[in-house]
Design a protein around this nucleic acid. Structure first.
Lengths: 115, 115
DNA sequence: TAGATATATAACCATATGGATATATTCCGG
DNA sequence: CCGGAATATATCCATATGGTTATATATCTA
C-alpha cells in the first residue's frame, strides 16, 4: 500500500514541473476561475491550456465545477498537502540521520565515561 | 528576481517526478552512497543510474564527492527546502484566500451592527 | 431550433525523457 | 606505466510532452 501511490506522486510532481501549470495553481489558490480566465496571462492557445488543466486534473491537484457552459476549476488542497508531506518525510529522514550522527559523535567525544 | 528561478523549480519538480529518483533521494537522506550502491535496488543499467544522478544534480538536489575512483553522492537539503517552500507558499496563499472569504462571510452575517 | 459562447478532442509536429549497449575516462595499486 | 574497478559519455530507440490548427460538444439565449 505504498508502491501504488507512486504513480500519483509521479503525476503530481510532473504536473508541478511546468511553469504555466504552477502559475495556474497560484491563480486558483486565490479562488476558482474559468478556462478562459486561466488562459489569459499566457501567450498560448486555449487547447494548450485545456491540456495543462487535464494534466493537473489527472494529478488530482484541481477539479472542475459546472456553471452554465463554463467549467470553473478549483484547487484540491488535499493533493497539495500529500505532496508537501512526501517532501517533509524525506526531510525528516535526513534530519533523523543527522541526529544519529550527532549521537555517534557525542559518544566518541565522551568515550565510555563511567565504565 | 523570480522568473529566473522558475527553470530551477522546473528541474526540481521534474526530478522528483520519477520513482527511481525519489528512491535515490530517500536512500541519500540516510547518508551518502556511491553510484554502485545507489543502483543496486533497481533492475536498470549503470548508465541509466548515472543519468538519473545527472538529472538530480542539474536540479541541485544532490552533489558528488570524490573518494578514490568513486564519486559518492550526497543530498543538498537546501534545494529540498526551497522546493518545500514553493508548495508551502501556495498553501499559504490558498489559506489566506479562505481567511478573506471567512471575513466576508462574517461581515455578511453581521451586517453593519453598530452603524 | 439556431447562434453564440465556453470548452474539449483530434491530428499532427518537434523536442525531451528513460531505457539499452558499447565505449571512454579516471583513479588506485603494483 | 598497466590492469582493474568505478563512473561517465555516446549513440540509438520508443514513448511522452507541449505546442499548434481544425473540429466537435455542450450550454445558454433568442
Amino acid at each position: 500500500m505504498d508502491i501504488n501511490l507512486a504513480p500519483q506522486l509521479d503525476r503530481r510532481f510532473a504536473a508541478l514541473a511546468d511553469p504555466v501549470r504552477r502559475a495556474i495553481l497560484t491563480r486558483l489558490a486565490q479562488g476558482e476561475a474559468t478556462v478562459g480566465e486561466l488562459g489569459k496571462p499566457f501567450g498560448i492557445s486555449q487547447p494548450a491550456i485545456s491540456k495543462h488543466l487535464k494534466v493537473l486534473e489527472m494529478a488530482g491537484l484541481i477539479e472542475a465545477g459546472q456553471a452554465g457552459a463554463a467549467r470553473p476549476r478549483r484547487l484540491k488542497p488535499e493533493a497539495l498537502r500529500e505532496t508537501e508531506q512526501w517532501l517533509a518525510g524525506l526531510h525528516a529522514l535526513w534530519v533523523d540521520s543527522f541526529d544519529r550522527l550527532d549521537a555517534v559523535l557525542a559518544q566518541l567525544q565522551q568515550p565510555d565515561p563511567q565504565g
